[in-house]
Design a protein around this nucleic acid. Structure first.
Length: 174
DNA sequence: GGAGTGATGACA
DNA sequence: GTCATCACTCCA
């Protein structure tokens, strides 16, 4: 009988195209050093210079500069003065892209997720790794692609109809 | 349906 | 320096 392998995803997993990484992230485990491991079930892509819903749509700023790095970095930002959003940078250097982790099997909602894992600004610009105390593992679970629903992103009406309606949200059916 | 909350970015 | 905005959550 084969033992279950928990494989820590390496940086090159995140250096691929954002939408591909989104689909592959569903069913992976977000693990923190305090022992919590949550199965990722909902993510959103923010991809490229032209994406009007992305923080990077108007160029590089001190807040979003980490989005321009190569994949595997953590981008944390505060929203509505209360909630930290956890994003994983994707793609190649100088191409701004990231994935918002919106929910897990055990915890739904991006703000609740970070509160549950005690994630805040201190994780910003760090790389996913055991040293950082936050990483993502492949635990051998691969959901059927037809169980991954693609929908428009949440809360991005400000981006205008074209970008608000892009099917950039990936949700695993429960 | 509506309020809370404060860092950030745009503009002057 | 000002000020509007916001990749959300909770309570009614």
């Amino acid at each position: 009988m084969m033992a279950t392998m928990n494989k820590l995803l390496s940086k090159n997993f995140f250096e691929r195209p954002t939408l591909t990484v989104c689909e592959d992230l569903i069913g992976k485990y977000l693990v923190s050093k305090n022992g919590l491991a949550l199965m990722i079930t909902e993510v959103e892509a923010y991809d490229g210079f032209d994406d009007k819903a992305s923080h990077a749509s108007s160029g590089k700023t001190s807040r979003n500069e980490i989005m321009f790095e190569s994949g595997g970095y953590i981008y944390m930002y505060l929203i509505y003065g209360m909630y930290w959003m956890l994003n994983i940078v994707t793609g190649q250097k100088d191409y701004p892209a990231a994935i918002l982790i919106r929910g897990a099997k055990e915890v739904s909602g991006p703000g609740r997720l970070t509160k549950h894992l005690n994630l805040d600004k201190s994780f910003n610009k760090k790389i996913l790794s055991k040293e950082t105390r936050l990483w993502i593992e492949d635990r051998g679970f691969y959901p059927a692609k037809k169980l991954i629903r693609k929908t428009p992103r949440i809360g991005v009406a400000y981006a205008g109809p074209i970008w608000a309606n892009k099917p950039y949200r990936f949700v695993m059916q429960s």
